[in-house]
């Protein structure tokens, strides 16, 4: 037994998790939410966030979960990566998927534009930290399940209509 067993870490909605070498980060059923993975290209360490809303300014409640919003989840996760993995943000790279528009409405519900707004907010948060976004699969009308493998830094995306693609 000299090979480490690959372990899959599930990232829930409004949550982020970090992964060590040989671990897989997975999040399921992304609709308008975005799964963003930030990784170190050679150290084989990564973090994945499943964000639901673009901005923490939308919060009207008494409780405040940083991992729910793109503008707070990303800096928080990068900060934790910095401490856990001793990496500098300038060495990190990002990929993202999700941000679909599951239903086409003509009304004025917030739910309408939340997918594209999430994608923009993730880009802004990455720009602030100067983390390049090297690949993305966003928009459309399909749900996605994504998996990031720290062994090869590839993000695989599964949809029920189009099968699996890798970015």
């Amino acid at each position: 037994m000299n090979k480490t067993k690959t372990e899959t870490i599930q990232v829930k909605i409004s949550d982020y998790q970090l992964a060590q070498p040989s671990q897989i980060l997975k999040t399921t059923g992304l609709g308008s939410c975005i799964g963003v993975v930030i990784y170190h290209p050679s150290k084989q360490v990564a973090g994945m966030a499943h964000v639901m809303l673009p901005s923490s300014k939308l919060s009207k409640g008494s409780t405040f979960n940083l991992a729910k919003y793109a503008d707070t989840a990303i800096p928080e996760m990068v900060n934790e990566m910095k401490q856990t993995f001793k990496v500098s943000p300038t060495q990190l790279i990002a990929k993202m998927a999700g941000g679909a528009q599951m239903f086409q409405f003509t009304g004025k519900s917030e739910a309408l534009r939340v997918g594209p707004r999430n994608a923009e907010a993730v880009k802004e948060a990455l720009e602030i930290l100067k983390i390049p976004l090297v690949a993305e699969d966003v928009g459309g009308q399909n749900g996605r399940t994504i998996e990031f493998n720290t062994d090869d830094n590839m993000l695989s995306i599964r949809t029920i209509h189009k099968g699996i693609t890798t970015i």
Partner: peptide, 17 residues
């Protein structure tokens, strides 16, 4: 589609509070 992707579309309003 996947239940998760569909139902999250109904959670946007509540997720703000």
């Amino acid at each position: 589609d996947m239940a998760g992707a569909i139902l999250s579309a109904g959670l946007v309003e509540m997720s703000q509070v």
